[in-house]
Design a protein around this nucleic acid. Sequence first.
DNA 1: TTGACGAAACCGTCTAATTGGTATGTTATG
DNA 2: CATAACATACCAATTAGACGGTTTCGTCAA
Lengths: 187, 187
Amino acid sequence: MSTAHHRKKQPLLVRQQLLEVAARLASEKGMMAVTLDAVSGASGISKGGLLHHFPNKNTLLEALFDSLIERLDRAIEEAMRADPLPHGRFTRGYLRACLALRDQPQETKDWAQVTMVLLSEPQLRQRWRDWVRERSEEYVGTDSSVDAAVVLLATDGLWLADLLGSHEMDESAREKLVDRLIELTQL
Amino acid sequence: MSTAHHRKKQPLLVRQQLLEVAARLASEKGMMAVTLDAVSGASGISKGGLLHHFPNKNTLLEALFDSLIERLDRAIEEAMRADPLPHGRFTRGYLRACLALRDQPQETKDWAQVTMVLLSEPQLRQRWRDWVRERSEEYVGTDSSVDAAVVLLATDGLWLADLLGSHEMDESAREKLVDRLIELTQL
DNA sequence: TTGACGAAACCGTCTAATTGGTATGTTATG
DNA sequence: CATAACATACCAATTAGACGGTTTCGTCAA
């Protein structure tokens, strides 16, 4: 009937699009606004199509979270490759990956916002716990000093502050802060 | 008809109870589970009664957030009163207030969880931004060093980690971490 | 090269339950 | 008795998701 049916089939693209729309919704309007109807409507994909890719809402949210963690992993890996010093490398990678967010296009920022939104759903927290534990075990040799822990936590705080728009500070203050954090990873 | 009607009228108590139930729901099941029906059902107060105290859902959420900030303020104030050193006093108060959460009864932890859940709702973020700005202006004289900023951010990170149950560490590691954070506020 | 065919990708509709909210009570309290 | 503090009964809208249909795609035989 409609032309929608005749659209070329591109499962991966559609899936990706659905996740992005869900991310934007969560980011802009909060968790309560992420409904199947809203995602379907805003993406132009029918509800049936949406439920074909994600058999239920929970699966959609989990996929969203996984996709998010993938992005984070890639960003960290990239930052770590450019870092010659082994000691504290992961901590700096984590810090720089989070810092880089500020200069990213809105679309990427949406994904960051989503982290926080998703963490507020108890069912998704375990995934985050797992991720943290895996990393902390992997980099126990290079990133387990007290100061590294301080920096990791401060990075989370900074990430939170960026997302919420709290802790406004001018560029020079921010630079000083970041320099200090980097310095702490090298002690 | 039912005895509920004959219950003694205690507006303040009922209001408090409604907020607590909402907090527990948000904490345990996430934002999406906080519905008027759920709050009403779990509290034993009718929906009409609930909507008498909070004319709409948004008002309920805002009241929840405000109540939360009050608690935080009181905890910080208390910690600050026990701190003789002016320099970095607010930062330490903030840190200690957040640390104290771990040893609180579940009910209080629920309230902490709620912070995160509520922050994920865009409409409530402004309130948090205001709070942060007010504090940072109030304590600009004693708590604006770079290291204080690091500690404030790390405290947020630690708070987040406690809430999410990530970053598991043994007691000695935690002690070392806290000692280091306190030390940083004194530099 | 073709074409048949099963599976995957999507669409549109329907529904039972739940949602936030209103309207109208009833009871207690000052 | 006036008003605040509740309760009960509703309502329109939205919700998650089940279902059956239609179209495209990969593949493999001929």
